[in-house]
């Protein structure tokens, strides 16, 4: 049970949503955009989150899109993880999001919510990073389309009052050879010890990681090391471990040493399998 009260509003346009947010802020109130809402509800219940207002963006038609438009796959931010997986439009994304939380929760968790999660994992972003995805953002009357990479610095860096409307993926990425691997502490339902999504584009492996560091990441430096096929696989992996953007996570899901062990195994499997597809 959530102990504190907040106002719930469900606007039907992006403009209105943004305005509600900014108005609330002007009055000194805290507002949050609400998509699937699962994280807001669970954190609010344990008093780890406070808000005066939630703005449910599921009523905004643009946010509910899931279709191929011309050369692009357009995914609305409020599309549920199960709907993405079921559509089979982007198999790597489907494989990845299908391992987030549990099946029932995935009917509620949305891709936008996952990308904006307060947790360190945000696994839904991995396939989008390796597919050089773009995002459409809305703020007031303004909408902008930018590369995901340009605004994802450990987390989505949005302007105040701005929110994620859509994710856009170039169609050419949808059927590249790919692989998603997730290792948990033990049960299939659980946070990742290591989660990786990778695809092969023009004989090069593009790869992104979750659970390894305090935020999901894709590193070009690391990719160049892993793609250096002149070097034996295990040696490449050894070098890659030195190019992680920061220290490996050490927490109750797994120690630093164990995560490193798991990551090595996962990388070996991915390299061996994806290199066969080149």
């Amino acid at each position: 049970m959530i102990a504190f009260d907040f106002k719930y509003i469900k606007p039907t346009t992006a403009k209105e949503a943004s305005k509600l947010f900014l108005n609330a802020k002007q009055k000194g109130n805290k507002a949050m955009f609400y998509s699937g809402g699962t994280e807001i509800i669970t954190l609010a219940r344990v008093n780890q989150l406070q808000t005066d207002m939630v703005i449910d963006i599921k009523g905004i038609p643009e946010c509910n899109v899931l279709e191929i438009r011309g050369n692009e796959l357009v995914i609305g931010s409020t599309v549920s993880l199960n709907d993405i997986a079921k559509s089979k439009l982007f198999p790597l994304l489907g494989d990845t999001v299908q391992r987030i939380a549990d099946h029932t929760s995935r009917n509620k968790i949305t891709i936008g919510g996952n990308l904006n999660s307060e947790l360190i994992y945000k696994e839904g972003i991995l396939p989008l990073l390796v597919a050089d995805a773009k995002v459409k953002l809305a703020k007031g009357l303004e909408q902008r389309i930018v590369s995901l990479e340009s605004i994802f610095k450990k987390q989505l860096e949005l302007e105040t009052g701005e929110f994620l409307v859509q994710i856009i993926v170039d169609k050419s990425y949808l059927d590249h050879p790919h692989m998603a691997k997730k290792r948990t502490k033990i049960s299939k339902v659980g946070y990742p010890v290591v989660s990786v999504a990778a695809l092969v584009k023009e004989c090069q492996i593009q790869i992104a990681f979750s659970g390894v560091c305090q935020y999901p990441f894709r590193s070009f430096k690391l990719e160049s090391v892993l793609n250096d096929t002149k070097v034996p696989v295990m040696e490449r992996i050894g070098t890659a471990m030195q190019h992680l953007p920061e220290d490996v996570v050490d927490d109750i899901q797994g120690t630093k040493a164990y995560r490193t062990f798991v990551l090595r195994n996962v990388l070996k499997d991915i390299l061996e399998e994806l290199e066969l597809t080149k």
């Binding site: 719930y8 509800i41 939630v54 929760s105 509620k108």
Partner: peptide
């Protein structure tokens, strides 16, 4: 669709 009723607001 199966849903955790603890993860939806009634007003939603």
């Amino acid at each position: 669709k199966p849903s955790h009723s603890c993860l939806s607001l009634a007003v939603e």
